[in-house]
Nucleic acid binder design. Structure first.
Lengths: 106, 106
DNA sequence: TCATTACATACCTTGACAAGTATATACGTA
DNA sequence: TACGTATATACTTGTCAAGGTATGTAATGA
């Protein structure tokens, strides 16, 4: 697992951009207004997100419309699997414990 | 969603520590040997992981045995959900497209 | 053509973080 | 008690990334 994608979405402003784009595709100016940062700051974060392929960009006259591309997040989803197994094993253990406890009452 | 957990696991050495501890709980010295960093470096990363509650620590004589605590990762799992929905919607759209294409052959 | 809008990028400054060295602390053993 | 082991932490240094200002660039409209 490459840690890079975590550093990309670990930056608070970038995370907020992703969540804003989840609602709808937006132009840079819309994101600037929504997130309250300066335009160069937003543009630079969008560049990072573009290079991580977490967003796509299409041109509309002078505007650039950015849209979310969630596919790279599938890597995180897959990475989580062994940890998910742990939660479930813990859950199994809890259930086992509860079963045992119930049995004591019988 | 707090971006902090992403910055914690976005550091390559910390990510490797997590994956090493997934195999088995280990003392600091074991991790130093396994990951090839210096002891202070590993100890400092373990401190960050401790503060994020991604690892627990128990004392065994002079040694500190660190074990994985995967529970905080559930937050990431939950955060992924709306993005997962997108993958599935895209999949639906693909299936729809394939259905339509099939129909054209009929 | 000139001004305006929308965005990207270059440059600079600052702050955070990671790694290394040196040191402190706690435990075990002779 | 003295020493070795295991780990944490203080301190320093270098690197990198984020934000701001200024500027470049492309498209629109008068």
């Amino acid at each position: 697992m490459d840690a890079a994608i975590f550093t990309v979405i670990g930056e608070p402003t970038r995370l907020r951009i992703l969540e804003a784009l989840r609602e709808r595709a937006q132009a840079v100016g819309d994101l600037v207004a929504a997130l309250g940062s300066t335009q160069p700051t937003i543009s630079k974060h969008l560049k990072v997100l573009r290079e991580a392929e977490l967003v796509n960009c299409r041109v509309d006259a002078q505007r650039r419309i950015y849209e979310l591309n969630a596919e790279p997040l599938q890597e995180i989803d897959a990475w989580l699997q062994p940890y998910r197994d742990r939660w479930n094993h813990s859950l199994d253990a809890l259930e086992q414990y509860l079963d045992d406890t119930d049995r004591e009452d019988e």
